[in-house]
Design a protein around this nucleic acid. Sequence first.
DNA 1: TAGATTGTTAATCGATTAACAATC
DNA 2: TAGATTGTTAATCGATTAACAATC
Lengths: 217, 217
Amino acid sequence: MSKNVSLPVVRRLPRYYRFLRELMENGVIRISSGDLSRRMGLTASQIRQDLNCFGGFGQQGYGYNVRALYEEIGRIMGLGKHREAILVGAGNLGRAVSRHMDFASRGFALTGVFDVNPELVGRQIGEVVIQDIRQLEAFCAPNPPAVAILCIPKEAAPAIVKRLVALGVRGFWNFSHYDIALHYPEVVAENVHLGDSLSTLCYRINELEKQPAQPEE
Amino acid sequence: MSKNVSLPVVRRLPRYYRFLRELMENGVIRISSGDLSRRMGLTASQIRQDLNCFGGFGQQGYGYNVRALYEEIGRIMGLGKHREAILVGAGNLGRAVSRHMDFASRGFALTGVFDVNPELVGRQIGEVVIQDIRQLEAFCAPNPPAVAILCIPKEAAPAIVKRLVALGVRGFWNFSHYDIALHYPEVVAENVHLGDSLSTLCYRINELEKQPAQPEE
DNA sequence: TAGATTGTTAATCGATTAACAATC
DNA sequence: TAGATTGTTAATCGATTAACAATC
């Protein structure tokens, strides 16, 4: 059905999913692309185009069934699968992310955590015990995880990524500033570059303040 | 000089900044758009177009002076300014983000942290003591921060954002799933939607695995 | 049936890439 | 001067929006 859907469309799917879930929780049974577009700040055209990348889920004259569409999008994203994920780097950020994130509802299960710091090794994050990074191969080789979450410094990243790719890991949730896609075009990397995001905010706040306080409307 | 540069260009600035910094640290004095494009996985055209949104920083036949360009981009992003930022929500994620992030090098200084949880109030994050969220107005009114970092649950967000906007806060680093831009088009919101990012990775990993293991090249 | 709303094709818009004259 | 590389204009590409026939 989906023959290489463009990344902008894919990145909108989680947002559709969230809005549909909320509608569902509020007991809304059906919704038209026009109504949804007003709620989400998109055009109705875009919503229909986006959804039709994956199939015709609506019905003329009626709109979309909220629950059916919600479930369809969940299936499209593959959230039901629970692939294995490991965390590399159990510092502040790594621990917070893995405690904060509900992996199960996003298609993953956290099965291993690794760090270089001997003070962290042996401690627990949720159900999982932090292992020494030297155990990485022993743990992963028999059963390589689908993705690795990288919460490690930039300098440590090249060697770790190399080891993980060699082990067969093909997906990265990358919080480091190492450019995985550049060096390994065959893998998938989702970057969360917090520093870049904050820098962008800095720029945009500056721009906003340059404007002489836009009058309302 | 810059008359409303497009967001895609702005979002590339932090990446240029990082690459230039690294070149600088490696003692590289000058670089051409062609050379930089190969290192960054962009086209030389795009680099020149991007930079020329802000001014002509290069020199024909020579290229760009690495240090000068680095500093120029820092100025463009406004990283030297150290505007005040507060954190709302000092849970796992909020604490990790504020400990992990070097605010000073991204144009901000963290001056206040707030939470509802009385067990957290009084504890410290770095130099800053966590205050009760009820102190928000008392703290902000005399001297409203430029931005607020939101690490709070979706349900808490509408009320908090309303209070912050009323106080004059015009920028948000938004880790919550509340859609600020939709409700307050006059403010700037940078979203970090970790859940959406992980869901996107889930989709992309699925797509990758559907492919019958692309041969090298 | 009439009204509503989809799925889809066509038009528009914006961003990226290519080309090249200007110039260091 | 000759070679290199920019800044900038023009061409291309892709994504968004508009339009509308199909149809529930």
